[in-house]
Amino acid sequence: MRAEPRLRSWGAVGVVALLLSGCAGPSAPAPSTRTPAPDAAAASATGSVDQKQLALADCLRQRGWDVRVSSGGLGVDYPASQADRFQADEQACISQAGMDAAPPTVSSEEAAWLYDEFLRITPCVEAKGIAVAPPPSKGAFVEQLTAHPIPAWHPYDGAPDRATELAKDCPVAPWPGR
């Protein structure tokens, strides 16, 4: 019997932080086998997690979701059958945490730059023994990212438990002009 597909989502503040830092994260929702990221206490101790992120994480946890907090944002894995429930809870918690702002937009030029940047770091990630999924076409990547500002493909996706290490050893350059 096949296991039910799992989906992932990254919190809205995390999306803004990821886009502005150049460390783009995964698509929401998309299949996931992610493992837990550092906990909120550890991330908070470094001062790298926004208080609104922590409020969002707490709210989602109170609603029964297993939330991971890192300096890159919030991560939640859930069964595909729970997508509607999660999205409703996420929207309620975003509002409760005071994070109702519109998500950032990504221009076609920025999306194309990020695609090239992801291709640039791919050999470094692979040299660390991590299998990187084949990238989509540049056109498909740009189209997806300009419609929804979270990349559906990222070289780090093959080892979410090593994302901090990869960001240090195989960094994505900062967004130009941001």
Rank of each mutant, 00 (worst) to 15 (best):
A3W: 09
E4G: 05
P5N: 07
P5C: 12
L7G: 04
V13L: 12
V16Y: 14
A17D: 03
L20F: 11
S21C: 06
G22A: 12
C23F: 14
P26W: 08
S27L: 15
P29W: 06
S32R: 09
R34H: 09
R34L: 02
T35C: 12
T35S: 11
P36L: 08
A37S: 01
A37M: 09
P38N: 02
A41C: 09
A42G: 04
G47W: 15
Q53R: 01
A55H: 02
L56Q: 04
L56V: 05
L56G: 00
A57G: 03
R61Q: 11
Q62G: 15
G64K: 15
W65V: 08
S70N: 03
S70H: 15
S71E: 11
S71P: 02
G72N: 08
L74R: 09
L74Q: 02
V76D: 12
A80G: 10
R85E: 14
A88V: 08
A92P: 07
C93G: 10
C93L: 02
I94E: 04
S95W: 07
A97Y: 00
G98K: 07
M99R: 08
D100A: 07
A101T: 05
A101R: 09
A101C: 00
P103F: 10
T105C: 05
S107Q: 03
E109H: 09
E109F: 07
E110P: 03
E110R: 11
A112T: 12
W113M: 05
Y115F: 15
Y115E: 10
D116V: 01
D116E: 04
F118A: 02
L119W: 01
R120P: 02
I121N: 03
E126F: 07
A127H: 06
K128I: 05
P135E: 00
P136D: 01
S137E: 04
